[in-house]
Write a protein that binds this DNA or RNA. Structure first.
Length: 478
RNA sequence: GGCCCGUUGGAGAAGCGGUCAACUCAUAGCCCUCUCAAGGCUACAUGCACGGGUUCGAAUCCCGUACGGGUCACCA
């Protein structure tokens, strides 16, 4: 019988959702879905000190925005709950005691001071198995007395441990490298090392997909599985996402959170698509994938073994691709808050601007700056009209603008199409190239050498009255 | 420092013993064009960190060196 695939995302509720974490969740999700398996969310809140209220909601909101659906979890329920570690305290204790009976774990009463003394000059410490040799009576006595204790895993001191990882291949570690780490802390809660193994087994996780910071402690976990006589899961360790060659992309460096990018005007589809590509490479040359396509195309063999550097430029490009293919109405929905926050708030037609901007922005937060030129109308220096390419100078520009005012004045229906007609007609009357007339009017109407959109479009946005007013002003400056 | 892992152009990467070393972003140039975008085209690693070896043949296999990452917590 082939086991049904079950993967999990097991974040700690410590604040915002980091892109690296999101990617781990994504891969675990994709793998589960493509194998018709189950995706589980488990909250690892065994560190009371790092707990941040509201962090669980952030995790839920982010996964939802990303389109990642959860089959079993704190809110969804499931047959293997509870899915919050702090609610599973008894389960861990029970298993830890079982290990003590088996002789692979033991009580340890060593205090901070004693542990401190074990530290060498470099600050590297190594527990010396001191309490492993405590006589049974003494352990009983101290337990009865209520002395604080932890439970440690008793590691073998010789031999080697070997395991297979689907990304890194076969990995071998000498057992004497393994420390007797703590399984149960003095507050009675398990450490990650322990809770993880217990939960992954009890929740029937078949494939453990996580960051490769756990790669070197995996042998310890395997020893635990073996002590219990449990099946060891398949391992898929992920390389980190880096900010640059040496620094990991982290919260400390700012703007590495999903929310930050959403706020900057990225589409969640684009973010997901981009991070999927960081550390994973598709079989063919396609790079733009919907979630559905990612589920179909994801493959463990495409996972990279070296860290990848986060490149916002490429994510911007991808985002622009998504923006361009958005139906116009949807584009406007996303764009609206940015128009509202810009200098054209309450003036001009957002939709006309939207038409101009959809192919001109990479992220929505560029809207305010792109739109600002229209209100920034100021005296136009004569040199701005001096364009050799169009055989233009201030004098010729003056003639064009003069001729354009009566022509525009006669226009009743102020529509873009009609505006184009007038400009083209003007060109033939003046016996000039249309391009020269367009350019001159574009500058006269905008007072900018570079604008998104051309003369007719800008006139359309300004409306008849303001267009004429600007043309008269432009004329007066010449 | 010990141990584990990695290293293909500015970035993401394909490549799995015989390829002109794919593809995408970025960059540059050209075309289109009323400017800017968008779109189209083109250029961009005599070379796969470096040094040895194995082989008729190596980015691909082996060894060493350098560099980078991870880990060595009562954090996950």
């Amino acid at each position: 019988m082939v086991l049904k695939v079950r993967t999990r995302f097991a974040p700690s509720p410590t604040g915002y959702m980091h892109l690296g974490n999101l990617r781990s969740a994504l891969y675990a999700y994709l793998f589960a879905r493509q194998n018709d398996g189950t995706f589980i969310l488990r909250i690892e809140d065994t560190d009371l000190e790092r707990y941040v209220p509201g962090a669980v909601e952030v995790i839920y909101d982010t996964l939802k925005a990303a389109g990642i659906t959860i089959d079993e979890g704190p809110n969804e329920g499931g047959a293997y709950g509870p899915y919050v570690q702090s609610e599973r305290k008894e389960i861990y204790l029970r298993h830890a005691r079982e290990l003590i009976e088996k002789g692979v774990a033991y009580y340890c009463f060593c205090g901070k001071e004693r542990l401190e003394k074990l530290r060498d000059e470099k600050g590297v410490s190594r527990y010396d198995k001191h309490c492993l040799h405590l006589p049974k009576e003494e352990i009983e006595k101290r337990l009865r007395r209520g002395d604080p204790y932890v439970i440690r895993q008793n590691m073998p001191t010789e031999g080697v441990s070997e395991f297979y990882d689907h990304v890194f291949g076969r990995i071998t570690i000498n057992n004497d490298e393994l420390e007797d780490h703590v399984l149960i802390k003095s507050d009675g809660l398990p450490t990650y090392n322990f809770a993880n193994v217990i939960d992954d087994h009890l929740m029937r996780i078949t494939h453990v997909i996580r960051g490769n910071e756990y790669l070197s402690s995996t042998p310890k976990y395997n020893l635990l599985y073996e002590a219990f006589g449990w099946k060891i899961p398949e391992y898929i360790h992920l390389t980190p996402i880096m900010k640059d060659e040496t620094r990991k992309l982290s919260k400390r460096h700012g703007d590495a959170h999903f929310d930050d990018f959403i706020r900057k005007g990225y589409l969640s589809e684009a973010i997901i698509n981009y991070i999927a590509l960081l550390g994973w490479s598709p079989k063919g040359t396609q790079e733009k994938f919907t979630l559905e396509e990612l589920i179909k195309n994801f493959s463990v063999s495409g996972l990279s073994r070296s860290p990848s550097i986060f490149d916002e430029k490429k994510m911007k490009w991808l985002n622009a691709e998504y923006i361009k293919e958005l139906p116009f109405e949807e584009f406007m929905e996303h764009a609206l808050p940015y128009f509202e926050a810009s200098k054209i708030k309450g003036r001009y037609d957002y939709r006309k601007f939207g038409k101009l901007l959809q192919s001109r922005i990479e992220i929505f937060s560029e809207i305010p700056e792109k739109v600002e030129f229209i209100v920034d109308y100021k005296p136009i220096p004569k040199e701005m009209y001096a364009l050799k390419k169009y055989k233009l100078d201030a004098g010729i520009a003056k003639g064009i603008i003069e001729a354009s005012i009566p022509a525009f004045s006669e226009l009743q229906a102020w529509e873009e199409e009609k505006l184009h007609g007038i400009i083209q007609n003007l060109a033939s009357v003046l016996e000039m190239k249309a391009a020269s007339v367009y350019t001159t009017l574009r500058i006269a109407l905008s007072a900018h050498a570079v604008t998104p959109g051309g003369a007719a479009e800008i006139a359309g946005i300004l409306g008849k009255e303001e267009s004429l007013e600007r043309l008269r002003k432009a004329l007066s400056w010449l």
